[in-house]
């Protein structure tokens, strides 16, 4: 309005001024764009370059080695094991976490004054879950003389050597991941609210019981949200690092060597930054493929709102 009623000089000034929508948009986006370019985009492309070199921290120049790093992955036992362990971790923890989150979300849809408090309480583990402090507590809980073993002994069972037994060590970590179901739960709870009550009323009149209501109304309606949660949780599960780094350090016998920890070890402990970059790119491709599969498969199980 202002622009139309005044002369061309003023027009120009106000175009340049920060009141202009385009300028304002860019100003507000600038911190993100800057951060993204500096701390994500540039390092990502640099890591692609380094993945073809023998670069290590502390070295000035990186010598081009072609596909050698990728070829080395074929013979790397720990790499193979870390892929296996990571897939196991993701395949067990993500579905269980989502089921649990959905379960709690459904329970907490009841109209009660306490619901808000319950939701906050259940969300807490997710807020603090990635922290070192919680990981340290977890390590103590599952230690040889930790709380869980004391309880087991108390009820007359044998102690379990949680972190000493290669076959057991991953499960406390999976349990910890499931325990951090809060963010998925909140999203599920929001989705549940969107389902019109009239459907349930109609179903009740038709004589549907609780289970039928859940499987024929709730699940189909929630399916887009399940898809979202599935993708997000899968990605974050693949990137799990803090917990294993603090609790087990990848042991015993690499039984908890999640991929991200393996990359860290190669890059910072064993001084093979180039190799670690190559591993990161393999992970990126793997994750892209898995996400793609999830999206493609969604055609068969996600029901779009507009179709319903």
């Amino acid at each position: 309005m202002d622009i139309k009623s005044t002369g061309s000089r003023k027009k120009l000034r106000s175009k340049l001024s920060i009141y202009n929508d385009v300028v304002v948009g860019h100003v507000f986006a600038a911190p993100f764009i800057l951060g993204f370019v500096c701390f994500s985009l540039i390092p990502i492309w640099m890591s692609l370059f380094y993945s073809f070199t023998d670069y290590s921290l502390g070295k000035k120049e990186a010598i081009f080695v072609g596909l050698k790093n990728f070829a080395m992955l074929y013979n790397d036992e720990i790499f193979a094991k870390s892929i296996y362990i990571t897939l196991k971790y993701v395949l067990i923890s993500v579905p269980l976490k989502l089921i649990f989150a959905l379960f709690v979300a459904v329970i907490l849809t009841r109209k009660s004054r306490m619901v808000a408090i319950y939701r906050s309480v259940y969300y807490l583990p997710s807020l603090i879950g990635g922290s070192v402090a919680v990981a340290l507590v977890w390590r103590q809980l599952f230690a040889r003389k930790g709380l869980f073993n004391v309880i087991l002994e108390g009820i007359g069972m044998d102690r379990i050597n949680w972190f000493g037994d290669e076959k057991m060590a991953l499960y406390p970590l999976i349990f910890m991941a499931i325990w951090q179901f809060g963010s998925s739960m909140i999203i599920f709870a929001a989705g549940l609210k969107e389902i019109p009550m009239t459907y349930y009323q109609a179903a009740a009149i038709e004589g549907a019981n609780g289970a039928k209501k859940f499987f024929y109304i709730t699940l189909p309606y929630l399916s887009p949200i399940i898809l979202y949660n599935l993708v997000m949780q899968t990605i974050s599960a693949f990137l799990t690092f803090t917990q294993v780094f603090v609790i087990t350090g990848g042991g015993p016998n690499n039984g908890t060597m999640l991929y991200a920890l393996n990359v860290y070890n190669q890059a910072f402990k064993y001084d093979k930054m180039g190799y670690a970059c190559a591993m990161s790119w393999v992970m990126l491709i793997l994750m892209t493929l898995i996400t793609l599969v999830i999206f493609k498969s969604s055609r068969f199980w996600v029901i779009d709102d507009s179709e319903a």
């Binding site: 390590r139 230690a143 040889r144 050597n161 949680w162 972190f163 000493g164 037994d165 060590a169 087990t248 350090g249 042991g251 015993p252 016998n253």
Partner: peptide
């Protein structure tokens, strides 16, 4: 001690 115990 095994690796798990030693990690403590």
């Amino acid at each position: 001690p095994d690796a798990g115990a030693s990690a403590e």
